[in-house]
Amino acid sequence: MKGRTVHPIWIALAALLAALLLSMLVGSVSLSLVDMARVVAARLSGGEIGADLRVADTILFSLRLPRTALVALTGSALAVSGAAYQGLFRNPLADPYLIGVASGAGLGAVIVLSLRWGYDVAGLLAVPLASFSGAVLTVLMVVSLARVGRSLPVTNLLLAGVAVNSFAGALTSFLLLRSTGELRRAIAWLMGGSSMGGWQPVLAVLPYWLIGLGILMTMGHALNVMQFGDEQAQQLGLPVETTRWIIIGVSSLATAAAVSFTGIIGFVGLIVPHLLRLLVGGDYRRLLPLSLLGGAAFLLLADVLARIVMTPQELPVGIITALTGTPFFLWILRRSRSLPYWS
């Protein structure tokens, strides 16, 4: 038993390391391995970086490294939240955007993008702040519409989520049609193609990621018990309502923080948990940490593709995840018809 639980984690860890490495090595400019090694050596030894290596150094450490870090954080936040939501809603179609994070973030971002912002701290942070608040407010709205007293029935949540999602989506479309000039930026944002680089986004996401994912990692047992249904779980001693509130709260915060800098990246939160469930089964104690590693690895690989398929143009990474995700999702559907892996 022990050997089997350790095994997939190490594989996932290896996959993540490979993806991290690939994300550093591959880009629209191909650097020679020798130059990269020299830059890394110079950085590690704290020595001077020669003039001939200045470009390689900028590309590796000012461009690729912060991007790699942000993509890894985003991918893992989406995948872990997706896995937790699928367990919470006991629904294979659940993803982190189910109850309004994406539609709210999109609406917030598009509202701000339809205004003009200057080049200053407020202007640069306007979009991430607006999308983060949009996401949090939308989730709060869904939750308050769905709740009955202190309990939060799952069906109510689903229905309120669908309704609020379409409402926010309609407002977003309206603003896009009314928009003058910033349309393309908004569309790129909605497809997960945000262009903000540097370390500030990474540092801004990190606290939400650490707290959110840290808490979700302890929820494996609770999610396992919840698969028996609310009443059974309650009888088994699980505080069902409290658990539900916590999972929704931390998943929403982590997802909202992640997408506010990268734009809306679809399918990661849906595919990665399903893929892992097919490979290692439905035990959430394994599924959650594996989703963390697998989500980061998957999004990193998608981002590498986004950088090179149409070079020098960079595609919004959401297009890649959806393009690779849709066929995969259909395959899952077909497979689950013949083999009921979801129980």
Partner: peptide, 26 residues
């Protein structure tokens, strides 16, 4: 507008990048 390759811009080693109002502050 859907995305510039910052890497390739850096690799050209320019001493000036000229932007216009169609570009976002990011």
């Amino acid at each position: 507008f859907m995305g510039f390759s910052i890497e390739q811009i850096v690799a050209l080693n320019p001493d000036l990048v000229l932007l216009a109002e169609i570009h976002p502050p990011e």
